[in-house]
């Protein structure tokens, strides 16, 4: 069973105490109608690691991130985040479907940046970043403001605090979206092709910000990208997907230079 963990996984105790395993998919199956997109998928991500998912279009990469963000629910199997079931609750020793409140609680550990940014067009930049900390985390307005300004500075947009998203370029919007996700202090950050909706000249700025975050924070990242040099820079492990299954996994050097599987070689030749 492929696992990106560079330490051997202790398969019978996913205990919170050692804290190594932050995300775990256990025999997760996801179907859309008759199509099985993920088939009994097992994988895990250790705390602080940066894991990149690669694979051809339709292989299920986005589906994995959306399952983690609870935008989708698995048909079979379980997902654990930091030791807690994401979609299930243990009641009287059996696993039952989790209530809305439980899901929201576990979900707080996860943040996501979308391909299309999805900023709130009705709020200015600063408010896009403070809204959730204030109303979801219950942070004071001043503290949220202070932290938002720091994060917006981190992504290089201090001049734009007072603009609406529609007044920013795609690259700037995406950087605000990154700040907005980080403002919730997630333990895991999900990035789904965050540069593929951008004009080519704007891609580098966004990737620089993400590199910076990857190298200076201890946040765990789960990344889907077609930017292979970026993936090589930041990843601890790369997972190659095909048809909802992991074909191959390993450290980026090995995966990009000497992949073992024919399918991986084939795929890399189309994107490199």
């Amino acid at each position: 069973m492929p696992s990106p963990a560079d330490t051997p996984r202790d398969s019978n105790s996913a205990s919170r105490a050692n804290g190594a395993e932050l995300v775990r998919f256990d025999k997760v199956t996801k179907r859309f109608g008759d199509v099985t997109v993920l088939d009994q998928l097992d994988f895990s991500v250790d705390t602080g690691k940066h894991v990149t998912l690669i694979g051809p279009s339709g292989s299920g990469k986005t589906t994995i991130l959306r399952l983690l963000m609870t935008l989708l629910t698995p048909d079979e199997g379980t997902i654990k985040v930091d030791g807690d079931y994401l979609n299930h609750e243990e009641r009287n020793g059996t696993l039952a479907k989790a209530g809305e409140k439980h899901v929201r609680e576990v979900r707080k550990k996860i943040g996501m940046v979308f391909q299309q940014f999805n900023l709130f067009p009705n709020m200015k930049v600063l408010r896009n970043v403070t809204e959730a900390p204030v109303h979801v985390l219950g942070m004071s307005k001043d503290e949220a403001d202070q932290r938002a300004r720091e994060l917006i500075e981190l992504v290089g947009l201090s001049e734009q605090l007072d603009k609406y998203p529609s007044q920013l370029s795609g690259g700037q919007q995406q950087r605000v979206a990154i700040a907005r996700a980080l403002a919730m202090r997630p333990q895991v950050l999900l990035l789904d092709e965050v540069t593929s909706a951008l004009d080519p000249e704007l891609v580098a700025g966004v990737l620089d910000v993400l590199r910076d975050i990857a190298h200076t924070t201890d946040i765990t990242m789960l990344v889907v990208t077609h930017e292979m040099s970026f993936a090589r820079d930041i990843s601890d492990a790369v997972l190659m997907f095909d048809r909802g299954k992991i074909v191959e996994s390993g450290p980026p050097d090995k995966m990009f230079s000497e992949p073992e599987h024919e399918r991986t070689r084939e795929f890399l030749s189309t994107v490199l």
Partner: peptide, 12 residues
Amino acid sequence: AQREAGVALGFT
């Protein structure tokens, strides 16, 4: 997508 962004940020 706006609903999804809201979900991702933990809003009820």
